[in-house]
Simulated assay, not measured.
Amino acid sequence: MKQKRLYHNTSLCDGCGLCQLVCALEHCGQWNHYQSRIKIINDMEREAFYAVCCTQCEEAPCILTCLMNTIYKQPGSDITVRDLYHCIGCRACELACPFDAAVFDVIKEKVVNCDLCGGRPLCVEYCPKQALTYDYPGDQADKKRNQAALQRFGTSLLEVFKFSGKED
């Protein structure tokens, strides 16, 4: 079964940054968005905000490049976690991340990533616009299809394809 993933809807996000502050407070005890494991990027050219955080890659490059073998997939959840006690802070994993989602924690002097708050991401819980969701990949695809049908036909996808049958 597929694992849940963090999704960001750019059309709902206003870039308030509350998700970053909640994340930093939870993981570092500081109300400082620079310590957050999720980053909100302001793309001024496209006039949109984008969330950047660990995508929990199946074949994670950070795991492969870790010199101390301190990054692994949590059994049962496939969340990418780090053993910070044995990490030497070399930052090789940070360079290997294709999404720029590995974050150097200046307090711990170690590289960290989004751990989905152990399966209950606080950034999702506190997002005032519901721009962040935590769903299964299939559920998210269904939501996007239904949203597209609603915009195009004015009704959900199920209603578009509903067969009413013949009346006698």
Score class of each variant (00 low, 15 high):
2 K>I: 01
4 K>G: 03
8 H>F: 15
9 N>P: 00
13 C>S: 13
13 C>P: 09
14 D>I: 14
16 C>M: 06
19 C>P: 01
19 C>F: 13
20 Q>R: 14
22 V>D: 05
23 C>N: 13
24 A>F: 12
25 L>Q: 13
25 L>I: 10
25 L>G: 09
28 C>F: 11
28 C>I: 00
29 G>P: 15
29 G>T: 08
29 G>A: 11
32 N>S: 12
32 N>W: 14
33 H>F: 14
33 H>D: 05
34 Y>T: 00
34 Y>I: 00
34 Y>Q: 13
38 I>V: 15
38 I>F: 09
41 I>V: 15
42 N>D: 15
43 D>A: 09
43 D>F: 14
45 E>L: 14
49 F>S: 01
55 T>S: 03
56 Q>G: 04
59 E>S: 08
59 E>W: 01
60 A>D: 09
63 I>N: 02
64 L>M: 10
65 T>Q: 12
65 T>I: 02
67 L>C: 03
67 L>P: 03
67 L>Y: 06
68 M>W: 04
69 N>T: 14
69 N>R: 07
69 N>H: 10
70 T>G: 03
70 T>W: 01
74 Q>P: 00
75 P>E: 13
76 G>A: 07
76 G>W: 12
81 V>E: 08
85 Y>N: 11
87 C>R: 06
88 I>T: 14
91 R>W: 04
92 A>C: 06
92 A>E: 10
94 E>G: 05
95 L>R: 12
96 A>V: 06
97 C>V: 02
97 C>Y: 02
100 D>F: 04
100 D>R: 02
100 D>S: 08
101 A>K: 07
102 A>W: 02
103 V>Y: 01
104 F>R: 05
105 D>V: 10
106 V>Y: 05
106 V>F: 08
106 V>M: 09
108 K>Y: 08
109 E>C: 06
112 V>I: 12
112 V>N: 03
113 N>E: 06
113 N>R: 06
115 D>M: 03
115 D>T: 14
116 L>D: 07
116 L>N: 04
120 R>P: 01
124 V>M: 03
126 Y>V: 02
127 C>W: 10
129 K>F: 12
129 K>R: 14
130 Q>F: 07
135 D>A: 06
136 Y>F: 13
139 D>H: 02
140 Q>S: 01
141 A>C: 04
142 D>N: 03
144 K>W: 11
149 A>C: 13
152 R>Q: 13
153 F>E: 14
154 G>Y: 01
155 T>K: 15
155 T>W: 01
155 T>M: 15
157 L>G: 01
159 E>M: 13
160 V>F: 03
160 V>Q: 07
162 K>D: 05
